[in-house]
């Protein structure tokens, strides 16, 4: 655990953990609102967003791409709502129409535009590049106190940290309206909570988390973290406050375990190449969910089943 760890593994690990937490927090509310697949939809439309941003600005700079992706997420949410309301189509199908079409448009634009030589491709969008986010300047733990080395931290880490902190703060600040309107929208409206704004705010927070995380870790982790840790957490407890804490713990555990297994697992098995960290993190989160489904204390429904 020396210089090599700090240089090669510390930052990807931190970015993975922060990304997982930033997605898991809004995920708790999304799954309780039966909107789990909004995360799926958002992460698919990030690709067309960054492609359009690239075509408009001509550069692969961070901010235009983040804005493009966030814009695409908002467009997708509006499109889904429009299809749902205007066409009176059930939410799942409306989502399916919207995000596949936007994703298809993104792929087409990508193929049509001259992006050769630019680090922008579908694979990257799908599973990110966590392993490459190393802290080149670091020489060991003491670099954490070295301003020169700190200034050379990968920008993704700073971005992800800011996003995760902002989402955690927003979740805490709006905890009551979020919980109340998720549980009982009619009552929430009657005590003066702007329920439509709360839903939109939640989706935007999810989009921001997805966009910030996606550049570093790709869209698979994003979907998996929106859903798996909160779902496993739901099975551990019957209190929302505790569920959110469990989900953060599961998210962090998935990220750490997944990263370590991806990097060192193959070596332990005698192979000489690491496997995709993003894929492994998603896999671990799935294993945690599977264990929760089998053994968690509150895994079974009590009382009447839903919709009765």
């Amino acid at each position: 655990m020396g210089a090599e760890f700090v240089q090669l593994s510390l930052t990807p690990l931190l970015i993975g953990v922060l990304a997982a937490i930033a997605c898991a927090l809004p995920g708790n509310f999304l799954i309780l609102r039966r909107q789990a697949l909004i995360g799926d939809a958002i992460s698919h439309v990030v690709l067309p967003g960054i492609v359009v941003a690239f075509l408009v600005t001509g550069v692969t700079a961070t901010w235009p791409m983040l804005l493009g992706a966030a814009g695409a997420a908002v467009v997708a949410v509006i499109l889904i709502e429009a299809i749902k309301r205007l066409g009176r189509i059930e939410p799942g199908a409306a989502m399916g129409v919207a995000f596949t079409s936007l994703f298809a448009a993104g792929v087409l634009l990508l193929e049509q535009s001259d992006t050769s030589g630019v680090h922008l491709d579908v694979q990257h969008a799908l599973y990110g590049n966590l392993e490459s986010l190393i802290w080149f300047q670091a020489e060991g733990w003491h670099s954490l106190a070295d301003p020169v080395a700190l200034a050379a931290l990968p920008p993704e880490l700073v971005r992800m940290a800011v996003t995760a902190a902002a989402i955690a703060l927003l979740t805490a600040f709006f905890w009551r309206p979020l919980k109340l309107s998720t549980f009982d929208e009619g009552f929430a409206g009657a005590v003066g909570i702007p329920t439509a704004a709360v839903s939109l705010g939640l989706v935007i927070a999810a989009a921001v988390a997805a966009v910030a995380a996606f550049d570093a870790v790709g869209s698979i982790i994003v979907i998996a973290m929106f859903i798996c840790p909160p779902a496993a957490a739901r099975l551990m407890t019957n209190r929302l406050e505790v569920q959110v804490l469990w989900s953060v713990a599961f998210a962090a555990l998935s990220a750490i375990l997944g990263y370590v297994l991806a990097g060192y697992g193959p070596l332990w098995l005698g192979a000489d190449n690491a496997v995709s960290a993003a894929g492994m993190i998603a896999t671990v989160s799935g294993l945690i969910l599977a264990l929760a489904c089998l053994f968690a204390p509150h895994r079974a429904r009590i009382g009447a089943p839903k919709g009765v």
């Binding site: 919980k179 549980f183 003066g192 407890t237 019957n238 209190r239 505790v242 009382g303 009447a304």
Partner: peptide, 23 residues
């Protein structure tokens, strides 16, 4: 509402105090 929501009886009653408690 979905009664499978992860919360306790007392928490639901406290929701009635939302206007007093605020954010």
């Amino acid at each position: 509402v979905d009664w499978d929501f992860p919360t306790r009886v007392i928490d639901v009653v406290l929701m009635g105090l939302y206007r007093e408690l605020g954010l």
